[in-house]
Structure formats: structure tokens, C-alpha cells
Design a binder for these strands. Structure first.
Lengths: 199, 199
DNA sequence: CACAAATGCAACACGAGAGTCTCACTTCTG
DNA sequence: CAGAAGTGAGACTCTCGTGTTGCATTTGTG
């Protein structure tokens, strides 16, 4: 789309700060979706004015944030070969990647549902492809629940619960944290949706 | 504590408005946890000044709201005989009652976690008794998950998902809405926590 | 190095919401 | 019915966050 660098006088310096701001926004907004731009600027180690220079207004910043998130989701769906791989494998793989996206999904829901009034924080394409995965899981007999939208809703609810689980929780066992959360997420969702689960 | 009515010149009129305000707050805050007192006053059909007369400040209103919610939860736990009845029966019964409390639990989480910084929106007693129920479920072999706190966390996450489900959703079947949601909640949670579920 | 770009800082205007107060008016309650 | 309690409406203060601007200074880049 626009990864090239044509006659573009954007100093590398500035672009780096864009990243910093987005990163800071993730952290701060996860703690409080209504946090001020000043808090975000502080977290990024920049002046508030700079935030306003990189992003026209608050909404623009949030747009960028969610655009980035969406891109990561799409990448995860690609990587997991959601429409072709065996559904259980794809579910596990996509979950692994989604868990890797250190991002409070509740944040997304919170912020989007009222600051961003209207459109879902998940792009239509993400929703469609995710629901397709659940359809495939159902067709394969891995789950009983038939409605993909309910499956997705539940998946996200559980994802939030798993995400909020403190680091050393007993449910996570002892090994790698991300791997443990992935396992917990997958087995919980499969159980919830009427599957037997791989455990 | 203070349920008596000593030399208390509280006009019935005023007390009725307290109820109206709390009711309005539930509705409005469910839509937007950061809604202004004016919106709440409008919803209640009262002037903003009146809200300030009944509740010293925003925090006081929220305190009252959550105190009321907590009372309802405690009542549900009593009613369901959570510590003595067969755990599966108690789970079903308490869920039935909780679903009856038309209240956005996400609202509670949202508001409490930052406006009310610090204490959980669920009173300690509610948490303890709820966790005890999950312990009993585990002991009875109805679920596999051993950590009561994880069970409760997941229960609430699922509750939110079930609560947000639109009225005529396919998952709910055709009968009574509340009963259908109760069934869905119970079977989903049991499945998620490693039980077979009663379905 | 020299210049343009980017930043920090401070100040400002603006709007929204909380909380307070007064006063005329309505509504309970004894 | 009479007085007390409650309310609505409006004005006012205060605080906080957003968005903008000007200017001196720092930092990147050809």
C-alpha cells in the first residue's frame, strides 16, 4: 500500500517517535482507556505537543492503534493458514500468535465501543476469517456450538480472562508463559464450545 | 447496621428519587461508564441538581450502586444455598438469579477498576462464597479446574458474553430468555472448566 | 558543516463536567 | 391547611483534557 519511501521528507527520528507513541498508548490505555494524551506522552518520554504533531487528534491516534492491531491479527490468520490447515492446528497456531500480541483486548472493546462509536474494533475481514475457522471446527466435529459469531464472542471473552491472568498462576504450569496461556486458551475454548479438547 | 428509621425526616418522595437515579445510572452507565451525571439525571427524569442533592458526589453514587449490586449477589448466594446444596444445583440456581440481575457486569469491572481505583467491585464475601462453590464443584468432580479464582474469573467472562448476546440469538433456543441464558452460561462454564456438563 | 526538520516548553483558547448556591415553585405530611 | 421538605432552573466557579501556536534548542541528513 505505502511501504515505499518516495519524495517523503519524513525524518527517521520522527517515525521512530510514532512507534514510541503507539507503544506507550497501548500500555497506558490498557490501564485506563480514558487516559489523557499527556499520560501517553509521558509514557513515551515525549512532550504532549509532539504527540499532537504526529497525530492530528486523539481519534487519529486511536485509529492508527487499531489499524496496527488489525494488521497483526490479519498476519496471524495468514500465518496460521486458517482456511486450509486442519482446524485444530490452525486454532492452536492462531491462538499462539494472538497471545503473542501483547494487547489488552478489553481495551480495544472499551475504547472502540464509545470513543470510536460504531464500527467494531475487529475489521470485517478478521471477523469473517475467524468465524470461518469456527465453522471448520464445527464441521470437523471439534466443537458442538454451531454459531460462529457466538464462538468468536466467547473466544474473545476467554482471551481476555487468560490475558489478565497473573504471570505465575497455577493454571499456567511452569514452562513458557506464552505457550502455557495458549494451551489454556485453546482447551478452555474447546471445552466451552462443547468439544472434548485435546488435553 | 442501620436499617431502622429513627428520627429520620426523609420524605418518601426523595427516597423514591434515589431509586430512580440508581436505576437510571445502571442503564446509562451500561452504555457508557464515563457518562455524565447530566445524562443520568435526564434518564431519571430529574434535574442534575437533584442528583447532587441525593448523592454528595459521583463517587457516592457509584458506591451506592455497587453496594446495591453486592447485596443482590449476596441474596443470590443465600437463595442458592451455595455452601450446602449439591454444587451443580447451586451453580444452576445462583446463575439463574445472577442472570436475573439485569446489570452489565462489564460496567462494574470498567467503572470500578479506574474510577473506584483499588477494591474489586465484588465484595470480598461474594468472592469467597463464589470461590467456595467452585471448590465444591471440583471436589464433586463436576469440573477439572482446581483454582477457584480462575474459575470465578472465567465465570464472569462468560457471563459477560452471555449477557451481551442479543435477544433472539440461535444459542438461546426458543423458550424463556432468562432460562435459556442460564442454561447456556452453566453448560459453557462447565465445559470450559473441564466438566462434561449436564447437557 | 549547514540547513531543514523535529522537539521541548510554555502559553493560550476552548469546551465539558463536577460541584455549589440561590430562589421561586411544587409536593408531601402532620 | 400550613409549614417543612424537595425540586427545577439557572448562574457560577473550578478543574481537566484537547488542540493550537510561537520560539529557542536539539538533532538528523545531504
Amino acid at each position: 500500500m505505502s511501504a515505499s519511501t518516495p519524495p517523503r521528507p519524513v525524518r527517521a527520528d520522527a517515525e521512530r517517535n510514532v512507534t514510541r507513541i503507539l507503544e506507550a498508548a497501548k500500555v497506558v490505555l490498557a490501564d485506563d482507556p480514558t487516559a489523557s494524551l499527556e499520560r501517553i506522552a509521558d509514557e513515551a518520554g515525549l512532550a504532549r505537543a509532539t504527540v499532537h504533531r504526529r497525530f492530528a487528534c486523539r481519534k487519529a491516534l486511536l485509529d492508527a492503534l487499531f489499524a496496527q492491531l488489525n494488521e497483526q491479527y490479519l498476519h496471524a490468520l495468514d500465518e496460521a493458514k486458517v482456511e486450509t490447515a486442519p482446524p485444530l492446528v490452525a486454532l492452536h497456531r492462531v491462538t499462539e500468535l494472538v497471545i503473542g500480541i501483547k494487547f489488552s483486548h478489553r481495551l480495544a472493546v472499551d475504547v472502540v465501543s464509545r470513543v470510536h462509536n460504531g464500527h467494531s474494533f475487529l475489521g470485517d475481514e478478521v471477523v469473517e476469517r475467524a468465524e470461518l475457522l469456527f465453522s471448520r471446527l464445527h464441521a470437523a466435529g471439534a466443537i458442538t456450538a454451531a454459531s460462529p459469531s457466538w464462538c468468536l464472542r466467547l473466544y474473545l471473552a476467554v482471551l481476555d480472562a487468560v490475558h489478565q491472568l497473573p504471570a505465575g498462576a497455577p493454571e499456567l504450569g511452569e514452562g513458557d508463559d506464552a505457550a502455557a496461556r495458549t494451551r489454556l486458551q485453546v482447551s478452555t475454548v474447546l471445552g466451552a464450545l462443547g468439544g472434548r479438547g485435546p488435553q
